[in-house]
Amino acid sequence: MKKVVSVSLGSSRRDHRVNTVLLGTEFEISRRGTDGDFERALAILRELDGNVDAIGLGGIDLYLYAGRTRYTVNDGLKLLEAVKKTPVVDGSGLKNTLERETAYYLRKHTGLLPPGSKVLMVSAVDRFGMAEALAELGCDMTFGDLIFAAGIPYPIKTVEELEEIAHKTLPEMVKLPFHMLYPTGKKQDTQDEKKVEKFGHYYHQADVIAGDYHLVRRYMPGGLKGQLVITNTTTREDVEFLREKGVGWLVTTTPEYDGRSFGTNVIEAVMVVLLGKSWEDITPEDYLEMMDRLEMKPRVQELGRRP
C-alpha cells in the first residue's frame, strides 16, 4: 500500500481519505488541512517525512510563472525545505500539461469552448499553461490577476501583457506572505463581498470562468447565466455552491474519487510514486503518458441548462 498525503494550508473541513487502486498499485490518499496555520503545516510535513511515499502541498503554490520564467514563492519554499526524505510536489509540474490538455480536449470533444468564447481567468500566473492554451485556441481572454489579487480594475487581454506585468511584479510578490496573495484557511469558506460587488460583472460578461477553485469561488457573484467553469478541485458542496450561483457546466481537470476531485498536487504525488523518478527528472511527456495510462480525462458535468 502506497501512502500519499496532501498537506494543505486550506480549510480542514475539506479533509478526506480514500483507498484506490491505480495501475495495479494500491493507494491510500488523504488530505490534511491546517486552516491557514503555517507552523502546523511545517510540523505535519516534518512528521510525515520518511513515513509516506509522496507528499503533495496544497493551498499554496511553490511556483508562479511569467511565460517560461518560474518564480519560487518564499512561503512555499519554506514548506518544501521542511521535507528532506520524501518526494514532495505542489502540482505545478503536472498542472502545466494537464490544463493545456483540458483546453484542447474541450475544443475537440465538446461544443463548450468555441473560438471567440469570452474567458475570464480569475488568476493566470498560477496556471500559465492553461492561459496560453486558451489564448491559442482563439478565446477572447480576460486575465483577472490585477483585478482580483490587487483590486486594480484592469483586465489584461493578452498573454504578452500578462507576461510583461508578471515579470515586473512576481519577483517581489513571491516574497510576500502567501496569505496576502491567496485565500488560505477559513478565508476559503467565505467570499470577499466587496470584490464580488465591485468586480462581479467580469463573471457576468464571461462565457467561461477558469482558474483555481478557491479564487473562482471567492469572487463569484450570483445570477450567472449558465456559464462554464473550468477548475481543479471541487467537493459536493462546491458543486452545489456553483449550481446556486447559476453555473451551467463544470469541468474539473483532475479525476474524481469518492465524490470529489483531487488537487493537482495529489495527482502529481501519485504519479511521482508510479513513475518512480525524482520530480526534477519527470518530463511533460512522462505526465502525458501517465495521464493516458490512467485514462485521465477532464470531467464534464452539466449543472443546469444554458438559457
Binding site: G151, I152, K168, P171, E172, M173, L176
Partner: peptide, 30 residues
C-alpha cells in the same frame, strides 16, 4: 517588499490598499 517584510517599512492601512500600493510601485519601477 523587503523593508516591509523585515519591518523597516511600516504601512498603516487596509491590506488591500497596501497590496495595491506595492503593485503600483512595482509597475513603475519593476
Amino acid at each position: 517588499t523587503e523593508p516591509y517584510m523585515n519591518g523597516t517599512l511600516r504601512i498603516i492601512g487596509s491590506e488591500d490598499d497596501i497590496l495595491r500600493l506595492d503593485f503600483i510601485s512595482l509597475l513603475i519601477w519593476g
